[in-house]
Nucleic acid binder design. Sequence first.
DNA 1: AAATATTGCGGGAACGTTCCCGCATAATAA
DNA 2: TTATTATGCGGGAACGTTCCCGCAATATTT
Lengths: 353, 353
Amino acid sequence: MIEDNEKTGINDIARLANVSKATVDRVLYNRGRVSDETREKVLNICKELNYQPNILAQRLASDKVYRLAVLIPKSTPDNPYWEYPLKGIENAEKEVENYGIKIKKYFYDLKDIRSFRKESLQVLTSDPDGIVFAPEFNRESIEFSQKCSHKKIPYIFIDSNLPKQNHLSYFGQDTYQGGYLAGKLLSLHLKKHSEVLILNFANELANYPHFMDREKGMRDYFTEHNYHGKITSLNISPDQETELKEIVKGKLHRRTRGLFITSSAHKVARQIQKTGKGNLMILGYDLTTPNLKYLKNGIIDFLICQKPVTQGYLSIMALFDHLVQKKDIQKSNFMPIEIIAKENYQYYLDSNI
Amino acid sequence: MIEDNEKTGINDIARLANVSKATVDRVLYNRGRVSDETREKVLNICKELNYQPNILAQRLASDKVYRLAVLIPKSTPDNPYWEYPLKGIENAEKEVENYGIKIKKYFYDLKDIRSFRKESLQVLTSDPDGIVFAPEFNRESIEFSQKCSHKKIPYIFIDSNLPKQNHLSYFGQDTYQGGYLAGKLLSLHLKKHSEVLILNFANELANYPHFMDREKGMRDYFTEHNYHGKITSLNISPDQETELKEIVKGKLHRRTRGLFITSSAHKVARQIQKTGKGNLMILGYDLTTPNLKYLKNGIIDFLICQKPVTQGYLSIMALFDHLVQKKDIQKSNFMPIEIIAKENYQYYLDSNI
DNA sequence: AAATATTGCGGGAACGTTCCCGCATAATAA
DNA sequence: TTATTATGCGGGAACGTTCCCGCAATATTT
């Protein structure tokens, strides 16, 4: 048995091929002109010895700096969701900064489409080597994607997906399936003629497709499992939020046993806490600080989560793998759909895990 | 504003302190004799410039090889659980091999305490720089821990914890809380006078404390939530497994609506599939291949999981961080307790996530 | 045929560390 | 006093790459 214990390096290849290491380098990375004959020879030897470049030495020697751009919504007190993907991005940043990766972040306002236009333009003019972005505004995002494609800048979608684009990868949730799972959870609590209320906050227009998918997932679950109780939807627009209490109260039927809130559940939970929740099972989305409060005190029964921190982390890492390590990246990466309750939330606060 | 854009290196420190880089190195890593005066000066400058060593260059220049040992149970067809931590360990291995980390794996038989003695001895004589091990056999593991401590080899517990040991860290489940959560899930399905059956396979003696904790967690949930239905436990020993069908059938009361199996749920599910499950809600542990089959076909309703792949991955990474990066390691790392159902298992098959 | 351009390749500095070797000077021992 | 040892420090090779510079040999143009 041959001891291939000692790592073969570019020098070994060069020696065996009777060329200089510069030539090996040229062959491996198409950096210059080499005769077909030498190229052949070098490649064969590399394959034979299963040459793996030492990535440490590579990054150390190379002065190339990869500049990445991140374009995501800004977090707000009302909806702090985006602070989590950002945290993941920053975790990744620490890990790769030694490898010559520089990350610049751009934030847009989910309630202001112009801010997206403005920031996305900024990103383009900065001409980065790779982009992570959240395509929440459909039309504008498609436009932006196409510009990136045109400039040959690899880009990754996070949190939302746009089909038929030329993106390198997608990291995010399977929105429909999350709603479907929520249906299963609710159904454990429902009786034959119970009613269900689904609440959407329609004020963040960009997010609306998400909410619709979630609702559809839940409704499909009930349909597929022959549940025939009444299911009502309610879309709350920004100008109605002050009267939330009355609206919710008005819609909560005596027989309602399920309440599914597709975003910012804490707003509703706050009202319900005042009136008492009775027999209701309440399901919301995302382990954000305001939601957590109501999970802890028992108003919210379950939160469906999609690993927002991991989404951010993996997006950056994928770009790193693609650019630096030249690895192949999976195009679609759905995050696990997590079920979080009062009894297990504490293990999800920690970060990436 | 000062541009500290350019990374400060050991050379910059040396120049500013009017010493050679060798001296800076000596100061930073206590490698030799330096006068207090110089030491002081160098340290101050480092602090001032917030010097962060370039880990790439460090590992490249250093010929030090860290040898890690992993000592875990071997996976069996009957209980393939341990193939998952192993996978995580191998994932980590790929990531750190460029950093001069070599990992050697030792496996023992959960049903044979002598194999643990033998393998643990092997580990000790190989005199590694760090150890990851699963302390399933209490008595022997404590002994082994103490030997490691004595030899000043840092060691990490995986999957099971031993209190009061001198371990560097623990990665694993909070067994009790898992059972507690299972209690909550079951309770969604129970009616006022339903009965619950808890099944333990007592044939892997080493695992028995796990099972007991799980049972206790569930029982406590019920107690704390004033549930007064009958709860029966059944411990199945190796010689009874052939008659599993009759035993289970005999214990399944007409009013039993909950079945909690603390390990290898597939064995029971297989029998239940034949007789029909009726109104039963069945809860098991771990998303292993045989369990998955019965989750898919609806016999098992929920599996409680503890990120076995991540446990393996993080254990190695922690040792890496400790040895190579000299980072501080958290002593206790509980994995998230995951609820897996037919509707979301597909997102958990992928690896580390 | 001479001048110029292209092709194929090697030499070697640089990246930021680690760590060995050896040299002064100071402290201690004889 | 002289010999020996201890202390404090600098020089510089090495790690495995990247990439610039430049030099022959060959091909093309004038």
